[in-house]
Design a protein around this nucleic acid. Sequence first.
DNA 1: TTGTGTGAATCCCTTCACAGCG
DNA 2: CGCTGTGAAGGGATTCACACAA
Lengths: 211, 211
Amino acid sequence: MTRRIPASTIRRLSHYLRSLEDLEASGDETVSSEELALRGQTTAAQVRKDLSHFGSFGKRGLGYRIEELSARLRQILGVDRVWKVALIGAGRIGSALFEYPAFESRGYECVAIIDSDPAKIGTYWSELQIHGPDDLESLLAELGVELVILAVPARAAQEMAERSVRAGIKGILNFAPIRLKVPRHVPVEDVNLVMELEALSFAITQHGSEP
Amino acid sequence: MTRRIPASTIRRLSHYLRSLEDLEASGDETVSSEELALRGQTTAAQVRKDLSHFGSFGKRGLGYRIEELSARLRQILGVDRVWKVALIGAGRIGSALFEYPAFESRGYECVAIIDSDPAKIGTYWSELQIHGPDDLESLLAELGVELVILAVPARAAQEMAERSVRAGIKGILNFAPIRLKVPRHVPVEDVNLVMELEALSFAITQHGSEP
DNA sequence: TTGTGTGAATCCCTTCACAGCG
DNA sequence: CGCTGTGAAGGGATTCACACAA
């Protein structure tokens, strides 16, 4: 049904969904592509083009029914269901994510925490006991984990990724500052804070040298 | 000296710099664009094109002198100096960033922490005392803060951003899931974890429906 | 010979503009 | 009318291919 959707489109769909949820709360029934564009820092044509990749669910002369479109976007983005997530690495970043409120409210359920620190193994975060890394594969497989959040130091990341893939997980959100080598069918999203900071300092530095 | 550098180029420069630092440690003297490409998940032509935006610092038939190129990249990315950073929001994400080891080692020095929670105001993280938001403007201005990391709830983010800009800061790393409205000359980098997760679940969902 | 630097060709994303439906 | 959906045009970024320097 779909072919080659640009990554930039996906990010915008995420935005549109958030805007729609705001609009739902405000009681409106429909939106135009122009209004969505305004809230998403893009253009009306772009909104329509983005949506057209997946079908045509607007009414000409009227716009999009908010409820219908948001349901469809949830479906497209795959968030019309609950994803079972394992958190590998119970350090600072792991803890921040674990408590991130948007996390559970958006359909991501953390069902396992893994860390290699003996002082942490066996302790609890909320109801969840922290496991050591030894039985990683069987643990993930038994719990039916689909998504892994990798928040371990760079040196441990590749091994944990490989073992997770072996356990049958389907995607990785990677906070370690390395390029993971995994089979092509396992998507990886990288979050690299140093890179973001460097993009920022570049932008500032350049700005100073231009009028 | 430079015009219109694509954002994707900057992210790759960041990568190259990290690769170069690895190579520096391993004692080599030179790299080819091909080797850099291999480590950066891109092509040799792309590496050369990226670098050519800023000048030509390779030697034909030989490659790039590692030390020279990494120094030049640090200069380009603006990380050949120390940036004074303020952390606004001392919650989970703030705490994770504060302890992020790459942070200080890369030239970002946190000189102030601000939070509105009365229970936190006055307490210390390492040597740094947490301030309330009341005197934000004067605090940032006095300390000469250039970069702000915004790790507060969405509802507070816009106000904190505006006040930071008024205090003369030059860039914002934003973790709040909203589009900040700030003057054009203040660059903002957004880190949106929900968006990353949604990109991942989209990729997985799509993948299943294709052979 | 090796590997850079770079115009030219290509590819892909965005924007335009308008036909067509409600 | 008003606003969507979409081919066509436009603009950037990536890739190609080769002249040229070491």
